[in-house]
Design a protein around this nucleic acid. Structure first.
Length: 513
RNA sequence: GGCGGCGUAGCUCAGCGGUAGAGCAGGAGAAUCAUAAUCUCUUGGUCGGCGGUUCAAAUCCGUCCGCCGCUACCA
C-alpha cells in the first residue's frame, strides 16, 4: 500500500480579500504536495476558508449582507486565488458546510465525554469597541475617571457563561509530546517560543461565546456558539471524514504537515494537539510556520495601501515566475521582502539567463546539429560529464531533504548550483567548436546537457509546474515519465524532439517617460 | 518586566572552534551555441563594540550598543 501524505494550508479567514501572504503559504504547501506526488506518495492536500466569528459577522453587516451571503462571496475569492496560483488542492473546505458542523459537534461531544469541556463563566474587562478582553494590569484610568484599555477604548466588567476546555490539565502532556517529537514545530525559533509559552503555564480556554450568533452551535446548548479556533482547527479532520473513522479519507489522518503563518503557530502547536489528544486522536506530525512579506521594505498594510494582490502580480509577470520568486526569496524561518526590482532580477537572471537560456542553447544545438534527435550518451563518460551528471542526480536527495524541512530557498539554491555548472560545462566543452572536429563528441556533450536539464526540470516541476512541463515536452519526456522514480531510467536515444522555444522571456521594463 | 532571535563584503544571506564564503551589484578578460544570454579571473570585510576562555574564536563565555519577535486569538 502506498504511503499517504496529508498536507494543509491554513483555512483563510474571510474578513478580507486574498493577498500575497495567503498566496505564499498556499504555494509553499502546493510545492510540498506536488513534490510528494512526484515521489509517488498518496497525497491529500487541503485548503479552504474559515468563515465564522464575530469579525465576519460584523464585516457582513458593514457590507450590508447576511453572513452566509458575505462568506459565499469572499470564499469564492479564495477559491479563485487557489486556481490563479495553480494550487493542486484535492479539496476545498468551508467551515460553514454541514460536514464541518457535524465534525465540530462530534468533536465537542467527545471532549465533553472525556471531561475536558466544562461549563463556567467568562469574565473580565471587555472593550466593546475593540471586541477584546484586557487584563487588569493593562488598564488605565482616563481624565474622566473612566477605566480604559491601552487603545483608549472604555472597558466594562463583563460576566457571561462560557464553556471551557481544560487546557491547564494538558501542560505536562504537551511538554512530553514536544520532547518526544522535536520536529513537531518548525522553524526552531518558533519551537522555542511555543515551549517557553507552555512552560509558563496554561489557563483553561474559553471555547464558547454567547455574545454573537455566527458560529457552530454548541450541542445541547443553543445559546452558545463554539470558539472560532476550536471550530477552525477541526477542519483538518473534517476533510478526512471525521467522525467517520471508516471514511475513505480517514487513512490520511494524522496529517503530516500543517503549513501556517507565524501568527497562528500557537493555535496549531498548543491548542490543536491538546484538542486532539483529549479526543483520543493522533496528532499531526509537523506544524511549520512561515514569516511575513514586507513590500519594498515596509510592512504590508491596508492603511499604507501597499497590499499586493496575487492576481494582479501573476497577470503581469506570469504564474511560475511569481511562484519561483516567493519560494526563492523568502528564507526559511525569516520574513521576506517583496520588491519589483528583486522580482524582475530573479526573473531575468535566474529564470531567463541561467535556466531558460541553458535549455535554449542546448536544445537549439540539438535541433540544428543532430537532426532534432536526442543523441546518445557517451560510451565512456569524460570526467567532466560524470561530475555534472552526478551533481544533477544528487538533486533528488538534496531538494527532497530541503523540502522536508520547508527550506524551499535552499532547495532552489541547490538546483541553481547545477544550472550554473551546466552553463560552465557547455562553455568549457564548447560543442560549437566540437562540431567542426568531432561530431560524435559534440553529440555526447549535448546529450549530457539534455540529461542534466531533464533532471533539473523534473525536480523543479513542483515549483513551476507549467513551464517545467513545457521544458520536459521539449526534451521529449512523456507526461507519464516525469516522476522522480523514472529519472533512474535514461531517455531513449534518437527521440525526435519538438523545435525548442524559449521558456522564460526576459522581462523588459516599459520605457519610463 | 520575562523569554527568544538577529547584527558577517554595497545588497540578500551561508558559515557557528582550526588560514573569511555564495548569489547579486562593481572591475578586467574570453568566447560567440544561445533569450546580448554565457564563461574565467578579480575589487571589496579589524565577521556590531569591549573583555575573557583556548595553542587557535564570526564560531564558546561575559558585558555593552542597535534592531526585531513572543508574552492567549489578522496568512
Amino acid at each position: 500500500m502506498t504511503e499517504t501524505f496529508y498536507v494543509t494550508t491554513p483555512i483563510y479567514y474571510v474578513n478580507g480579500a486574498p493577498h500575497i501572504g495567503h498566496a505564499y503559504t498556499s504555494i509553499a504547501a502546493d510545492v510540498v504536495a506536488r513534490w510528494k506526488r512526484l515521489q509517488g506518495r498518496d497525497v491529500f492536500f487541503l485548503t479552504g476558508t474559515d468563515e465564522h466569528g464575530q469579525k465576519v459577522e460584523k464585516a457582513a453587516q458593514d457590507a450590508g449582507l447576511e453572513p452566509q451571503a458575505f462568506t459565499d462571496r469572499i470564499a469564492a475569492e479564495f477559491e479563485a486565488m487557489a486556481a490563479t496560483c495553480g494550487i493542486s488542492n484535492d479539496d476545498f473546505i468551508r467551515t460553514t458546510e454541514p460536514r464541518h458542523k457535524a465534525a465540530c459537534a462530534a468533536l465537542w461531544s467527545k471532549l465533553v465525554e472525556s471531561g475536558d469541556i466544562y461549563l463556567g463563566h467568562y469574565e473580565g474587562w471587555y472593550a466593546v469597541r475593540d471586541e477584546a478582553f484586557y487584563a487588569e494590569d493593562e488598564l488605565a484610568t482616563n481624565v474622566h475617571g473612566v477605566r480604559v484599555a491601552p487603545t483608549g477604548a472604555p472597558v466594562e466588567w463583563v460576566r457571561e457563561p462560557s464553556y471551557f476546555f481544560r487546557l491547564s490539565a494538558w501542560q505536562d502532556r504537551l511538554l512530553a509530546f514536544y520532547e518526544a517529537h522535536p520536529d513537531f514545530i518548525a522553524p526552531h525559533a518558533q519551537h522555542r517560543e511555543v515551549l517557553s509559552f507552555v512552560r509558563g503555564g496554561l489557563n483553561d480556554l474559553s471555547v464558547s461565546r454567547t455574545s454573537f450568533r455566527w458560529g457552530v452551535e454548541v450541542p445541547g446548548d443553543p445559546d452558545h456558539v463554539m470558539y472560532v479556533w476550536l471550530d477552525a482547527l477541526t477542519n483538518y479532520i473534517t476533510a478526512a471524514g471525521y467522525p467517520d473513522e471508516s471514511a475513505e479519507r480517514w487513512r490520511f489522518w494524522p496529517a503530516n504537515l500543517h503549513m501556517v503563518g507565524k501568527d497562528i503557530i500557537r493555535f496549531h502547536a498548543v491548542y490543536w494537539p491538546a484538542f486532539l489528544m483529549a479526543a483520543g486522536l493522533p496528532v499531526t506530525h509537523r506544524v511549520s510556520a512561515n514569516g511575513w512579506w514586507t513590500v519594498e521594505g515596509e510592512k504590508m498594510s491596508k492603511s499604507i495601501g501597499n497590499v499586493i494582490e496575487p492576481a494582479a502580480l501573476i497577470a503581469e509577470f506570469g504564474l511560475d515566475p511569481v511562484r519561483f520568486f516567493f519560494l526563492r526569496e523568502m528564507p526559511y524561518g525569516n520574513d521576506g521582502d517583496f520588491s519589483r526590482k528583486a522580482l524582475i532580477s530573479r526573473l531575468n537572471i535566474d529564470l531567463a539567463n541561467d535556466l531558460g537560456n541553458l535549455a535554449q542553447r542546448s536544445l537549439s544545438m540539438i535541433a540544428r546539429n543532430c537532426g532534432g534527435r536526442l543523441p546518445s550518451m557517451p560510451g565512456a563518460p569524460a570526467h567532466a560529464d560524470q561530475a555534472i551528471l552526478d551533481h544533477a542526480r544528487d538533486l533528488v536527495t538534496l531538494v527532497g531533504t530541503a523540502i522536508d524541512r520547508q527550506a524551499f530557498h535552499e532547495a532552489l539554491e541547490e538546483v541553481w548550483r547545477v544550472i550554473r555548472a551546466g552553463n560552465g560545462y557547455i562553455d568549457h566543452q564548447a560543442p560549437w567548436a566540437l562540431k567542426k572536429i568531432d561530431e560524435t563528441r559534440m553529440g555526447e556533450v549535448l546529450r549530457v546537457l539534455a540529461e542534466v536539464i531533464r533532471i533539473v526540470a523534473t525536480v523543479l516541476q513542483p515549483f513551476m509546474p507549467e513551464s517545467m512541463g513545457r521544458m520536459l515536452d521539449q526534451l521529449g519526456v512523456q507526461p507519464d515519465a516525469r516522476s522522480l522514480a523514472v529519472l533512474a531510467l535514461p531517455m531513449a536515444d534518437g527521440t525526435l524532439l519538438p523545435p525548442p522555444h524559449g521558456i522564460f522571456p526576459r522581462f523588459v521594463a516599459e520605457a519610463v517617460c
